[in-house]
Every structure is written in structure tokens, then in C-alpha cells.
């Protein structure tokens, strides 16, 4: 009896048995891979496809070859957006040292330190839309707090969001507020993991202040710094909501970045040039790809090193 059923069940079980370890992770990954492929990978190729056409989103797309890219090449608005993207990338990185500084400052045991920490973390919790509105009022040339304060020392008024010279910096400053809080929290967790014995050893060797930070603390914060870099650079490249809320890309398009320009061209009230928008998106994607490739590569190297 038993001998008759055994081989059958052994065959069935043994296939699963033999492949279980190899198959299980793929089974768990399958939903993720499926959705990632359908909603991320596929649209990338679709965007590239659309960027070679002229399409208003209603009729049939009309292939135009590289015409969209040729037009981008001569489009002053594209260069303004590209320039602003570079400014964003560079200045947004200030969030990292600022976050580190605040984290070091808050990393002490004083009564009520948790309250101070939460207060510093607060801007990251509120929505970007609210941050944008708050800063818009702060900068307002007629009743804004900034100009009232400048008035006390006999300066101003400055029309931050209406002046092409200041507008991008004004928006970046608003963006730095929550981003600094984010970096701060990353560093605060990192500081918890700093080995007190190494600090003690450094102290015995008479390391203090800057030297202690530079040679003992910072190397141990490397993972936190890496993550802070990643989120800050990605955050700078996808800056969109603040621009949309605070200036709508203005004055005369001087505060646009690539992502906002793409939105305006393809999807806004006066837009609907899907092909041209897709071409901008492809350029933005290539820029992001440089960073993403670098991050992936350095993460992979780290794993190999372990």
C-alpha cells in the first residue's frame, strides 16, 4: 500500500523540495517585479517612444524623428530649467551639513531634548504644499515677514518670488527647511550607533572638537551620509511641488526646473505637447540615471567588500 503511493508523492515533493530555496524568493518578489515592470520600466520605454512623435493626447501620434530633441536644443526655456536643476542639485546638498550640525547639537542629554528634537523634525512632517504656502507669505513683498524684518535694518523690500534673480534661491531655501530636518533625523539615528569606546580612545589620544568629528565620528556616520546624499539628490531632481505652489514656474519661466517644464508642456492648461514633454522627461531621466547608476554601483561595491 504505502510503497505504491510513496514514489508518486516523492516525485511531487522532491521537485518542490529541490527548487524550494531557489523559487521562494522569486515567488515573493513576483508581485513587486510585476508592478515595477508595468508601472516603472514599461513607461520609461513608452516615454522614449512618445518623445519621437508629435502628439496632443487626443488624435493619433505622428512620428517626427528627432525633431523634439532638435527643438529642445534651441529652446531657451529648456536651458533655464537645466540651469535651475543644477542650482537645485548644488544648493540642496547644503541640507546635509546643516542636518549634521543640528544633529550634533541635539545629540545631548538635557531635560526636554525630545521636545526640541520633535520641533526640529516638524518641518519634515508637514506637507510640501504647506511649506510652500508658508514661505510664499513669508516672502510676500507687501506684508511678508521677511520684508518687515528687512525694514527694521533699513533694507528691502525684496520681491523674492517675483524677481528672476532671487526666485530659484528663494524656493530652494523653502525646500531646505524640511530637507534639513530629514538629514538631521538620519544623522541622529547614526549618532546613536557611534561606538562610545572609539570616542573614549580618541579622547585619550587628545582628539577634540573638529579633529574628533573629522577622524572619529564622521567615518562611523558613513552609512547615514550615504543615505542623506541619495535622498537629497533625488529630492533636488524631483523638486516640483514647491515650484508649482510658490511661483507656478514664474516670473516668465525663470524658476522652472526640468520636471516642472515637462509638466507645463505636456499636462498643464496650456500644454498637451506630449512628444515634447516626453523628450524633456527623457533628458531628465538620463541625468537621474547618472546618479542612480553611481549609487547602485557604490552600494554593490559595499556589499562585495563585506
Amino acid at each position: 500500500m504505502t510503497t505504491a503511493t510513496l514514489p508518486q508523492s516523492r516525485v511531487r515533493r522532491s521537485w518542490w523540495h529541490r527548487n524550494q530555496i531557489a523559487v521562494t524568493p522569486w515567488l515573493f518578489l513576483a508581485p513587486g517585479i510585476l508592478f515595477f515592470a508595468v508601472y516603472v520600466i514599461l513607461p520609461i520605454f513608452q516615454s522614449v517612444g512618445i518623445s519621437f512623435t508629435q502628439w496632443d493626447g487626443l488624435g493619433a501620434p505622428e512620428p517626427v524623428g528627432l525633431a523634439n530633441y532638435r527643438e529642445l536644443w534651441d529652446d531657451p526655456a529648456f536651458y533655464t530649467s537645466l540651469r535651475n536643476n543644477v542650482i537645485w542639485l548644488l544648493l540642496y546638498l547644503l541640507a546635509i551639513p546643516a542636518g549634521l550640525f543640528i544633529a550634533l547639537f541635539l545629540n545631548q542629554t538635557v531635560t526636554g531634548i525630545r521636545i526640541y528634537k520633535s520641533l526640529f523634525f516638524f518641518p519634515f512632517v508637514i506637507s510640501q504644499v504647506v511649506v510652500g504656502l508658508v514661505f510664499t507669505w513669508f516672502y510676500d513683498p507687501a506684508f511678508g515677514l521677511l520684508n518687515i524684518m528687512l525694514g527694521w535694518i533699513g533694507l528691502g523690500p525684496i520681491n523674492v518670488l517675483g524677481d528672476p534673480a532671487y526666485v530659484t534661491y528663494g524656493i530652494i531655501l523653502a525646500g531646505l527647511w524640511p530637507q534639513t530636518a530629514y538629514c538631521m533625523i538620519l544623522y541622529l539615528t547614526g549618532l546613536n550607533a557611534v561606538n562610545p569606546e572609539l570616542i573614549e580612545a580618541g579622547r585619550l589620544d587628545n582628539a577634540k572638537g573638529w579633529r574628533m568629528l573629522r577622524h572619529v565620528v564622521l567615518p562611523q556616520l558613513r552609512p547615514a551620509t550615504f543615505i542623506a546624499f541619495v535622498v537629497t539628490i533625488i529630492g533636488a531632481l524631483r523638486s516640483f511641488d514647491l515650484i508649482s505652489i510658490m511661483t507656478n514656474g514664474g516670473p516668465f519661466g525663470e524658476s522652472r526646473v526640468l520636471s516642472f517644464y515637462m509638466f507645463e508642456v505636456a499636462l498643464s492648461e496650456y500644454g498637451f505637447r506630449m512628444g515634447y514633454g516626453a523628450a524633456i522627461a527623457v533628458v531628465l531621466f538620463l541625468i537621474m540615471l547618472c546618479f542612480i547608476a553611481y549609487f547602485l554601483w557604490s552600494m554593490w561595491r559595499e556589499e562585495q567588500g563585506r
Binding site: 528672476p164 514664474g250 516670473p251 516668465f252 519661466g253 500644454g271 505637447r273
Partner: peptide, 22 residues
């Protein structure tokens, strides 16, 4: 203006008007 001119033209032109005013 933004109903008489095609949407794309209106956008570019109105941005030009704003720049001109400044």
C-alpha cells in the same frame, strides 16, 4: 487672448508679456 490664440501660443506669448512688463 488665451481663448483667441491656440493654447500653446497663448502660454508663450503671455510669458513674453510678463517679461516685457518687468
Amino acid at each position: 487672448f488665451d481663448r483667441d490664440a491656440p493654447a500653446e501660443m497663448a502660454k508663450v506669448a503671455m510669458e513674453g508679456f510678463q517679461r516685457f512688463m518687468v
